[in-house]
Structure formats: C-alpha cells, structure tokens
Nucleic acid binder design. Structure first.
Ligand SMILES: [Zn+2]
Ligand SMILES: [Zn+2]
Ligand SMILES: [Zn+2]
Ligand SMILES: [Zn+2]
Lengths: 138, 138
DNA sequence: GGGTCGATTGTAATCATATAACGTTTCTTG
DNA sequence: CAAGAAACGTTATATGATTACAATCGACCC
C-alpha cells in the first residue's frame, strides 16, 4: 500500500541505503557524496552513483537532508522531518557544526507568500551560514 | 578612500565585471558560470576563472546573487540588496522564472533565532523551489 | 618620471560534484 | 513460476569550482 506516506522503518532500508545512512548518522557533521564513497570503499562501494542513489532514497524518506550551500548531506536530527514544510540549518563555517531547526512562524509566513502568488512549493531551503557561538568568541 | 562601503557606481566596474553583469542583466533567468563563459567567448573570455572572479566581486557589491540550489547566478532585482540581511528566491522548476523577495518578519524571526544562540550570520539563504502560478495550472 | 603596492587579469592544470547510459540482479506480487 | 518494479554495478561523461603562477594595470607617493 503506497497511497500515502508510511514511516518506513530503518530495517526496511536496503544494504546500500543503510550503509550510507549509518555513515551520515555517525558523522559529526555533513558529508559530501564523495566523502561517503571513500568511507564505504571497504564495504564494496565503487562508484558515485551507489551513493547518490542511496541518498536520493534517504532524502525521499526524510531521513537525510541535503545542504544546498555545501553540496553535502546530513542525517536528520529529528524523528519525522518529512512532515515539516520548512527546515532550517545553521552552519558554522569555522567548525562545520550544523544545527537543524524549524520555526512555525517562518513556515506560516512563507506559506502565505506562496499562497498569495499561487506558487506551489516542492522544496524549501533555509540555510544560515556564519559562526556558531563557540567559534564567534574565539 | 575606502574606510567604509561606498555605493560603487556601475561605471566603476572593470571591463570583465561589466561584461558579466550585463550578461546576467539581459538574461531572463539565472545563468551558470559556464553559460556566462560561453556567452562571452566573443568578448575574449577563455577560462572559468574570468567569470568566477567577476561574479565574486559583483556579489560583494550586492549586484548579483548566487542561487545555491541551482549553482547559478542572477542579477539583483532591487537597487541596493546589500542592505538586506535576508533575501528570498522563489524558483520555478518548470519555466526557470525566479522571483526575488524579502520579508521583514522572517528576517526578524531569523535574527531572533540567531541572537538567542549567539550565531553570527555571514550569509542567509532562502530558496523556494516549486511551480510558479503559470506553470502550476498547466 | 620612477617606484611601489594592491587589485585585476590571463592561462593551464586540476579538483569536486553529479548524471547518462546500459545491462544485471533482486524483490514483490499474482 | 512469470512479470514488473526497484535496486544495483560499472563505465564514461557532464558540470561546477579552485589552485598556482606569471603578467598587467591603476592609484598613490616621492
Ligand atoms: Zn530533519
Ligand atoms: Zn563553530
Ligand atoms: Zn537583490
Ligand atoms: Zn513557471
């Protein structure tokens, strides 16, 4: 049954998808597709497409997010992000730390803007780049 | 005198900067760096760096914006965008149209979020991808 | 004019990110 | 089992961005 979006359990992930997801989950920051590829060479990964295909699926499931301004990927910090319309990221350009957040007010505001213009959203990107609290005081 | 940021008039742009800016201004949508390069071959452009260097400067001056989710660039639709902290783009994935906007409320909200966490912003990216009014009804 | 310094330019080589194309394998369902 | 859908493996290629180095230009001062 696929008439609506299920919460597919992690155990339903394929081998490659699980490997990529685990790599992202255990990382302490975002990873590029090619970094993931390198980390999974020992597991049999040979080509970028193996990573990109897994990433596509994981993003579809809401388990992974793409950071557009970094061309890299990060495991979702929340349980069920697929339900959110807007997800934001604060990215520290010094230490690489990424904080994921959402804000109902911003979501509403963007929703209003789009509705007024009959713009039908598919994906919303909000990325703040700068220095985190720790890095901005050093 | 360079003790503070001047509004450098367009006439102060160098030859390459002006060429790149004109290419973006006369385009009806965002252009990639390599598309710009191709368009400027007749003007003597030979290498990507000639484009990227001009783009860097133009972005610094607030005359051009980078669309992170498209890896491409667009001339600013407003006179003095450098003064805005937050600029948003609504990008139609069907026709390529891009609408630039700003929203004081969202800006405030993001500002609050960052201040509370002592996050020092350098660049804020807000990009809505989807279908414009025209394309979503066809 | 000559000297100096910073910004800009030209060019080649290289790195980094992402997809196309094609065939095979595995999973699911009837 | 048959048949379609999804995932996979592999090669080649497309697209986007930077490093490195030498040459040139422009503003400024002596
Ligand atoms: Zn998330
Ligand atoms: Zn930091
Ligand atoms: Zn602008
Ligand atoms: Zn459209």
């Amino acid at each position: 049954m696929t008439s609506h979006v299920h919460e597919r359990p992690l155990s339903d992930l394929t081998k490659n998808q699980k490997l990529v997801f685990d790599a992202l989950s255990s990382a302490d920051g975002p990873l590029s597709a090619y970094t993931i590829l390198d980390q999974l060479r020992d597991e049999g990964f040979r080509a970028p497409l193996q990573v990109y295909r897994a990433l596509d699926k994981l993003q579809e499931l809401g388990l992974v997010h793409r950071l557009e301004s970094l061309n890299s990927f990060i495991a979702c910090a929340h349980p069920h992000c697929a339900s959110h319309g807007m997800i934001g990221f604060a990215i520290c350009e010094n230490c690489g730390q990424v904080e994921e957040f959402s804000d109902a007010e911003i979501e509403t505001r963007l929703g209003t803007w789009m509705r007024e213009r009959a713009f039908k959203p598919r994906k919303t990107t909000v990325e703040l780049r700068g220095l985190c609290a720790t890095c901005s005081t050093h």
